[in-house]
């Protein structure tokens, strides 16, 4: 049920190496990969949740061997073919067979500032009443998989599944990624920041007072 991207709590990765003086992009292709992904997203053939899921469902072998922006490029190439924007033949030959019917949607240089400034808010008018308030004790679902699609996108990390915590913030209703990543529309649900004591998550918590807070949708939670 799990995928490699869900790595919170994993052992064995070694030290974090702070690089406060590193350039924003070590290689020009990384900047290009970022920009290409953002611009291709503007064609409107998928949303943010779909593109995150495309990175997550790279084969474990690819996910592990690719660097960060290599994952982006691989996922972008997969999405472009899956959505019929490009063909496998075009990818393998390295050239276009002809112009695209989507060319009217192309992001132009003079539109970039406005598009980046606009963003893509995920809050929506509430269609479900919030079931919880700050201070409420809640239990997260015990298995962290997508309930709609086997192997589908979800944002309940494995380490936070089946734990009891406390609601500390109510964020309003937001697009539900488990649905949105799979063509089921926004399906907004109330979203909460839930604080879990470190002792509820880890066998050997570092400190009795420490907490981890995750943002969780209402259907990930039940009263505790």
């Amino acid at each position: 049920m799990s995928r490699l991207h869900d790595m919170g709590g994993r052992h064995g990765d070694g030290p974090v190496r702070p690089d406060s003086d590193a350039p924003q992009f070590e290689h020009p292709w990384q900047a290009r990969a970022l920009a290409l992904t953002l611009a291709a997203g503007g064609l409107g053939q998928w949303n943010l949740d779909v593109s995150r899921h495309a990175r997550e469902r790279l084969s474990p072998k690819d996910y592990a061997r690719f660097s960060y922006f290599e994952k982006w490029i691989a996922a972008l190439a997969n999405l472009l073919v899956e959505r019929g924007v490009l063909t496998r033949k075009e990818l393998s030959e390295g050239r276009a067979d002809g112009p695209s019917a989507l060319a009217g949607k192309t992001l132009r240089a003079d539109q970039v500032a406005a598009v980046l400034a606009k963003g893509a808010p995920s809050d929506r008018p509430a269609t479900t009443a919030p079931q919880f308030q700050p201070g409420d004790r809640v239990r997260s679902r015990r298995i962290s998989g997508n309930r709609l699609f086997d192997g589908g996108h979800t944002r309940l990390p494995g380490y936070a599944a089946g734990a009891v915590g406390q609601v500390v913030r109510v964020h309003g209703a937001h697009v539900f990624p488990d649905a949105s990543a799979h063509g089921l529309g926004d399906a907004p649900e109330p979203l909460y920041a839930v604080a879990f004591p470190a002792s509820a998550l880890w066998t050997h918590p570092e400190h009795p007072a420490d907490e981890v807070i995750t943002d969780l949708w209402q259907s990930y939670l039940e009263p505790a």
Binding site: L36, E70, I73, A77, G94, T106, L107, A109
Partner: peptide, 27 residues
């Protein structure tokens, strides 16, 4: 990696789906 990105940018530009100047502006 650099060739992968270049190939994808080239194909998308030929199809009229990417304006390379927009990529410069994002970067």
């Amino acid at each position: 990696p650099a060739l992968r990105v270049k190939a994808l940018e080239t194909i998308l530009t030929q199809k009229g789906l990417i304006d390379p100047l927009a990529l410069d502006a994002i970067i």
